[in-house]
């Protein structure tokens, strides 16, 4: 086998080390930093993109939060307005009710006063009517006339001495 022919061992080793060292220098000076740079750049770019995406996401989340806050606020405001309105309406209704009630109460009171007056008046006429009635009845029953004073005295006695 030619592999075990020692004639060219020295030449093989010499050229092996020479070419290996040249390749080592070429790669470590030119090729590897370049490839490493490209990979690093891409890595950085990807990381940057990710950062940006994260930032955008953050912003979107903030926007959503703001929107939701505004929504909640306006909802609360609407609620408040509704409540206020309801309160105002209720108050107005109360006021009107009260006014009507007052008015009615006043009218009732007036009516009562009038009734009382009418009653008093009627009661006041009772004596007169009774006296007249007494006189007429006596006249009819006995046939003799009774003067007013007598009749009145009788009525007063019948009413219990109250005149």
């Amino acid at each position: 086998m030619p592999q075990f022919d020692t004639t060219y061992f020295a030449s093989q080793l010499f050229w092996l080390y020479a070419s290996f060292i040249v390749l080592f220098i070429l790669l470590s000076v030119f090729a590897l930093p370049k490839i490493g740079g490209v990979l690093e750049e891409r890595q950085k770019r990807i990381a940057g993109d990710l950062d940006k995406a994260a930032q955008l996401k953050h912003e979107a989340e903030a926007a959503i939060a703001a929107y939701e806050k505004a929504l909640a606020e306006s909802r609360a405001q609407a609620h408040k307005i509704m409540q206020d309105n309801a309160k105002a309406i209720a108050e107005a209704a109360d006021a009107r009710n009260k006014a009507i009630g007052d008015k009615l109460a006043k009218q009732i009171k007036e009516g009562e006063g009038r009734i009382l007056a009418a009653k008093d008046e009627a009661l006041g006429h009772i004596r007169e009517i009774s006296t007249e009635l007494v006189r007429a009845s006596v006249e009819k029953l006995t046939g003799q006339s009774v003067d007013d004073a007598q009749a009145e005295a009788a009525v007063t006695a019948a009413l219990g001495g109250k005149a």
């Binding site: 060219y8 020295a10 030449s11 093989q12 050229w15």
Partner: peptide
């Protein structure tokens, strides 16, 4: 020392 440039060296 024989360090001839050979076909092996060529391919290296």
């Amino acid at each position: 020392v024989n360090v001839s440039f050979t076909n092996s060296s060529l391919f290296m």
